[in-house]
Amino acid sequence: MNLLRPDLIEHLPRLRRYARALTRDVTQADDLVQDTLERALVKLDLWRPGTDLRAWLFTLMHNLFVNQVRANKPLETDLDTAQDIPVNGGQMDAMALRDIHTALGRLPAEQREVILLVGLEQFGYAEAARILDVPLGTVMSRLSRGRERLRQLLAGEEIDAKVVKLKVIK
């Protein structure tokens, strides 16, 4: 029996990065990672060797995240839960980092997930569709709406709710 699970450990840094961006909270993010790993160990027999383990782990995390969002609050309120997150210095100045944190928090969870899977985690569109269990067209429309909304948020534009609503077309 292997005491080490190198297959899962290798994915740990990236699972943490995605969870952090998704929740924008260190504790919440690591709890999500922990739940994901626990579930992965229980279900590891269901994972088919030869398929992408990383995508499978992200699928598990997505399902857990969706359940949490559903249990805690309706998706609507997620729009207003932008948090101020302390930032650690990096290549960008603190202001820009806080902006992206805040802007992400203002995106609906479903758009945030697509933007992060594609833009940060560099999954292909079809892979993102499989992880989220939605059609490819839905991934593309969420990506499009999410990026446009993020652009407006980062540009400091006031978003007119009606305008956004009009853009919600698949």
């Binding site: 029996m1 292997n2 840094p13 943490r16 944190h101």
Partner: peptide, 29 residues
């Protein structure tokens, strides 16, 4: 620019020390 901002904001997580509880959670109980 959005993609670049996401990397700048969250790539540092990859370099953080791994919490031991998470490392342990990757092992079968």
């Amino acid at each position: 620019a959005q993609n670049q901002a996401l990397h700048a904001a969250f790539d540092p997580v990859l370099n953080e020390p791994l919490p031991l509880e998470l490392v342990r959670a990757t092992r079968r109980q």
